[in-house]
Simulated scan of single mutants.
Amino acid sequence: MGFTPFFLVYGAEAILSTDLGYGSPRLQAYNEQSNCTAREDALDQLEEARDVALLHSAKYQQTLRHYQARRIRSQNLKVGDLVLRLRQSNKGRHKVTPPWEGPYIVAQVLKSGTYNLANENGEILTNAWNIEQLRCFYP
Protein backbone atom coordinates (compact mmCIF):
# COMPACT_ATOMS: atom_id res chain seq x y z
CA MET A 1 0.00 0.00 0.00
CA GLY A 2 2.98 2.26 0.31
CA PHE A 3 2.43 3.13 3.98
CA THR A 4 3.06 1.30 7.23
CA PRO A 5 0.05 0.46 9.42
CA PHE A 6 1.54 2.60 12.20
CA PHE A 7 1.62 5.62 9.89
CA LEU A 8 -2.00 5.11 8.79
CA VAL A 9 -3.17 5.03 12.41
CA TYR A 10 -0.99 7.70 14.04
CA GLY A 11 0.05 9.90 11.11
CA ALA A 12 3.79 9.52 11.73
CA GLU A 13 6.41 6.85 11.34
CA ALA A 14 7.43 4.90 14.42
CA ILE A 15 10.79 5.56 16.03
CA LEU A 16 12.54 2.34 16.89
CA SER A 17 14.61 1.83 20.00
CA THR A 18 17.68 1.23 17.84
CA ASP A 19 17.16 4.68 16.32
CA LEU A 20 17.29 6.16 19.79
CA GLY A 21 20.32 4.13 20.84
CA TYR A 22 22.45 4.84 17.76
CA GLY A 23 21.31 8.38 16.93
CA SER A 24 19.86 7.94 13.47
CA PRO A 25 19.94 10.88 11.01
CA ARG A 26 16.21 11.29 11.54
CA LEU A 27 16.75 11.99 15.24
CA GLN A 28 19.69 14.30 14.59
CA ALA A 29 17.56 16.42 12.22
CA TYR A 30 14.79 16.78 14.86
CA ASN A 31 14.00 20.36 15.80
CA GLU A 32 11.41 21.15 18.53
CA GLN A 33 10.22 24.49 17.08
CA SER A 34 9.60 23.25 13.55
CA ASN A 35 8.13 19.99 14.83
CA CYS A 36 4.79 21.55 15.88
CA THR A 37 4.10 23.06 12.46
CA ALA A 38 5.32 19.95 10.69
CA ARG A 39 3.03 17.81 12.86
CA GLU A 40 -0.02 19.97 12.02
CA ASP A 41 0.79 19.73 8.30
CA ALA A 42 1.25 15.97 8.59
CA LEU A 43 -2.14 15.59 10.31
CA ASP A 44 -3.77 17.60 7.52
CA GLN A 45 -2.22 15.27 4.93
CA LEU A 46 -3.08 12.12 6.87
CA GLU A 47 -6.56 11.76 5.35
CA GLU A 48 -5.07 12.07 1.86
CA ALA A 49 -2.50 9.39 2.69
CA ARG A 50 -5.27 7.11 3.97
CA ASP A 51 -7.23 7.63 0.75
CA VAL A 52 -4.15 6.79 -1.32
CA ALA A 53 -3.61 3.64 0.76
CA LEU A 54 -7.26 2.68 0.25
CA LEU A 55 -6.89 3.09 -3.52
CA HIS A 56 -3.73 0.97 -3.54
CA SER A 57 -5.49 -1.72 -1.51
CA ALA A 58 -8.52 -1.71 -3.83
CA LYS A 59 -6.27 -1.99 -6.89
CA TYR A 60 -4.39 -4.91 -5.32
CA GLN A 61 -7.62 -6.71 -4.45
CA GLN A 62 -8.99 -6.16 -7.96
CA THR A 63 -5.80 -7.56 -9.49
CA LEU A 64 -5.95 -10.56 -7.16
CA ARG A 65 -9.64 -11.16 -7.99
CA HIS A 66 -8.84 -10.98 -11.71
CA TYR A 67 -5.99 -13.49 -11.29
CA GLN A 68 -8.23 -15.92 -9.39
CA ALA A 69 -11.04 -15.55 -11.95
CA ARG A 70 -8.67 -16.58 -14.76
CA ARG A 71 -7.93 -19.85 -12.99
CA ILE A 72 -11.57 -20.88 -12.63
CA ARG A 73 -12.71 -23.20 -15.36
CA SER A 74 -16.22 -22.62 -16.64
CA GLN A 75 -17.09 -26.27 -17.07
CA ASN A 76 -20.46 -27.61 -16.07
CA LEU A 77 -21.08 -31.30 -15.58
CA LYS A 78 -24.45 -32.98 -15.84
CA VAL A 79 -25.92 -35.93 -13.95
CA GLY A 80 -24.62 -39.11 -15.55
CA ASP A 81 -21.31 -37.69 -16.83
CA LEU A 82 -18.19 -39.74 -16.20
CA VAL A 83 -15.40 -38.00 -14.31
CA LEU A 84 -12.01 -38.72 -12.79
CA ARG A 85 -11.36 -37.59 -9.22
CA LEU A 86 -8.07 -36.22 -7.88
CA ARG A 87 -6.52 -38.65 -5.37
CA GLN A 88 -6.82 -37.36 -1.82
CA SER A 89 -4.24 -39.58 -0.16
CA ASN A 90 -0.58 -40.07 -1.03
CA LYS A 91 -0.46 -43.30 0.94
CA GLY A 92 0.90 -46.14 -1.18
CA ARG A 93 1.70 -43.82 -4.10
CA HIS A 94 4.97 -43.49 -5.93
CA LYS A 95 6.13 -41.25 -8.75
CA VAL A 96 4.47 -43.24 -11.56
CA THR A 97 1.10 -43.63 -9.81
CA PRO A 98 -1.54 -41.63 -11.69
CA PRO A 99 -2.90 -38.63 -9.77
CA TRP A 100 -6.48 -39.37 -10.86
CA GLU A 101 -8.76 -42.22 -9.85
CA GLY A 102 -12.07 -43.36 -11.23
CA PRO A 103 -14.13 -43.18 -13.36
CA TYR A 104 -17.02 -42.00 -11.25
CA ILE A 105 -20.53 -40.97 -12.26
CA VAL A 106 -21.95 -37.55 -11.41
CA ALA A 107 -24.91 -38.46 -9.20
CA GLN A 108 -26.15 -35.01 -8.22
CA VAL A 109 -25.38 -31.37 -8.95
CA LEU A 110 -25.48 -29.58 -5.58
CA LYS A 111 -24.70 -26.11 -6.94
CA SER A 112 -22.59 -24.72 -9.74
CA GLY A 113 -19.17 -26.35 -9.43
CA THR A 114 -20.08 -28.80 -6.61
CA TYR A 115 -21.08 -32.40 -7.28
CA ASN A 116 -21.92 -35.66 -5.56
CA LEU A 117 -20.31 -38.69 -7.16
CA ALA A 118 -21.28 -42.34 -7.36
CA ASN A 119 -19.02 -45.31 -8.06
CA GLU A 120 -19.62 -47.91 -10.78
CA ASN A 121 -22.04 -49.84 -8.52
CA GLY A 122 -24.26 -46.78 -8.02
CA GLU A 123 -23.20 -46.16 -4.40
CA ILE A 124 -23.14 -42.42 -3.75
CA LEU A 125 -19.94 -41.18 -2.08
CA THR A 126 -20.39 -39.21 1.15
CA ASN A 127 -18.29 -36.17 0.22
CA ALA A 128 -19.18 -33.42 -2.22
CA TRP A 129 -16.52 -32.62 -4.82
CA ASN A 130 -15.47 -29.31 -6.31
CA ILE A 131 -14.95 -28.91 -10.07
CA GLU A 132 -11.26 -28.17 -9.39
CA GLN A 133 -10.83 -31.77 -8.18
CA LEU A 134 -12.62 -33.37 -11.13
CA ARG A 135 -11.76 -34.01 -14.78
CA CYS A 136 -14.01 -35.28 -17.53
CA PHE A 137 -13.45 -38.93 -18.44
CA TYR A 138 -13.66 -39.90 -22.09
CA PRO A 139 -13.83 -43.70 -22.48
Rank of each mutant, 00 (worst) to 15 (best):
R26K: 10
L27H: 05
Q28A: 07
N31G: 01
S34Y: 03
N35G: 08
N35A: 12
N35V: 08
C36M: 08
C36L: 12
C36E: 08
T37A: 08
A38D: 09
D41Q: 12
A42Q: 12
L43Q: 09
Q45W: 01
E48C: 02
E48N: 11
A49D: 13
R50D: 02
L54A: 14
L54R: 15
L55N: 07
H56A: 15
K59H: 10
Y60W: 15
Q61C: 14
Q62M: 15
T63H: 11
L64R: 15
Y67G: 08
Y67T: 12
Q68I: 07
Q68E: 10
A69S: 03
A69T: 05
R71I: 03
S74G: 05
S74F: 02
S74M: 01
N76Q: 09
K78V: 10
V79T: 12
G80V: 06
G80M: 02
D81F: 04
V83T: 04
V83W: 00
V83S: 05
L84Q: 12
R85Y: 09
L86S: 06
L86Q: 00
Q88A: 14
S89F: 00
N90Y: 10
N90L: 12
G92W: 01
H94L: 10
H94I: 05
E101C: 02
E101I: 00
G102M: 04
Y104R: 04
Q108R: 13
V109R: 13
L110E: 02
L110P: 00
K111M: 10
S112F: 00
G113Q: 03
G113S: 04
T114L: 13
N116K: 15
L117A: 00
A118W: 01
N119A: 09
G122W: 03
G122M: 01
E123Q: 05
E123M: 02
I124Y: 03
L125V: 00
I131E: 13
E132S: 14
Q133E: 10
R135Y: 01
